[in-house]
Design a protein around this nucleic acid. Structure first.
Lengths: 236, 236
DNA sequence: TCAAAAGTGTTGATACTACACCCATGG
DNA sequence: CCATGGGTGTAGTATCAACACTTTTGA
């Protein structure tokens, strides 16, 4: 007990599942590894080690800034992975965080770093447990994932699906002001199924604290849609 | 990166929220600390450090066995706490697990260890964030909780409430064969509110894969209730 | 035969879905 | 004035909750 720091203990890391919705599909930021052969795959979730006297959340912010140059992105902790053998370098326990941003913002960070790419994510519905996640490039090439990162990615997307209804996490994919159609696109991409417009509109409006701004979308053809924003007061 | 183990990193621990339902109320196992004055309270969740090359789940099993002598208890990981200053001894990151057992089984382990007690838990409904958990003895004395363990306890109970509907976690509080009345008692204790019998019966039976065994409760006065069991095939 | 708890049927309210329709704007 | 997407009304259906009722057993 008293000598907890002198005995060998596992290394601690954070892994980031950075997501956005682009072109009607969910995308994740992946990082190419030079040591792919021994890690079981070329592509991995961006991550970093947690140093002593640094809070895990501060490590997340550091990794976000280092790899993508982004600040102020929304992120949440979702689970911790510590199985032996998950990292061939030794015993590394990793706290997985989901980070969410608009596609435009993430893209800027991705193109600024040669080792990063934005991959299309596909996660099935059937089984309860994670693991059936795949990532592919725009031309359909599958990107093999290192470590247990396919499991992590699958778990995160399933948790995200569950949280869409009863939290405001879905709006983190959108700019501060957005159309209801854009919100529907986000939900359809995450759930990987199409939704009917009237049902979606009503459910969204009475489940979440949204407020019509009166402003309209600009630039599009045909009738401009109204812009909504999240009401910070929660409707009360 | 390559020298992750040579740099100082945080200590890693597991903390266990061991719960049971007794006398219509939710109870948690707490451990008395000799160093309560500097830890901010006399009572803490049982826990232990994760050593290198030991999986966190194996550490949980070890702590369960060491502190209570119990084996094969159901447990699940729920969240990880790593804020600086949460442990006055240094930077300790703790993975919190919820462990569930029948009251009879847990009691055996608690009376066998002088430092353990089974405390009544009260968690409010209002706020979303954790922290409003209190623990008290049978005579109503409040037990001050050390570290951030009141937050952890509150978070766990709230997650448990959410999981009651769509997982079978609630049945871990019961023996393999149980009456529907016993299941209702468990739900009422966890949710801290009374439920109407017919609604509860129907919801339970079509939300969860339960099967009537044909066997009846014995020993009670009045009409004996039928015993049910969880169908491992999930009804399909 | 009575008391107490097990178990079920019925009804009224609520929420959700699906479909059809109207509205506004650019070309 | 037409095509296209934004936005809304309505009706049918499934789900849910409360109440009253019947059943079964021990004393």
């Amino acid at each position: 007990m008293t000598d907890a720091f002198s005995y060998p203990h596992p290394a601690l890391a954070v892994d980031l599942v950075m997501l956005c919705v682009q072109g009607g599909a969910l995308h994740v930021v992946l990082m190419q590894r030079a040591d792919g052969a021994e890690m079981g795959g070329d592509w991995a979730l961006p991550g970093g080690f947690v140093h002593r006297d640094t809070a895990p959340e501060d490590t997340v912010a550091r990794v976000l800034a280092e790899k993508t140059g982004l600040h102020g992105i929304h992120f949440e902790q979702l689970a911790t992975y510590g199985a032996l053998g998950r990292d061939p370098r030794g015993h590394v326990v990793s706290i997985a965080y989901i980070a969410i941003a608009e596609a435009e913002a993430l893209s800027v960070g991705v193109v600024a770093n040669d080792t990063l790419t934005l991959a299309r994510v596909h996660v099935g519905w059937s089984g309860e447990a994670g693991g059936v996640a795949t990532a592919q490039t725009a031309d359909g090439t599958l990107l093999p994932l290192a470590f247990d990162h396919a499991d992590i990615l699958g778990d995160m997307v399933k948790r995200l699906r569950g949280k869409l209804d009863y939290t405001t996490i879905g709006f983190e994919f959108l700019p501060p002001r957005f159309t209801l159609r854009a919100a529907q696109d986000v939900h359809e991409a995450i759930l990987n199924q199409s939704l009917t417009k009237p049902a979606f509109r009503r459910k969204l409006l009475d489940r979440h604290p949204l407020r019509a701004t009166g402003a309209r979308e600009t630039g599009g053809a045909y009738r401009p849609a109204e812009l909504y924003e999240v009401d910070p007061e929660g409707g009360q």
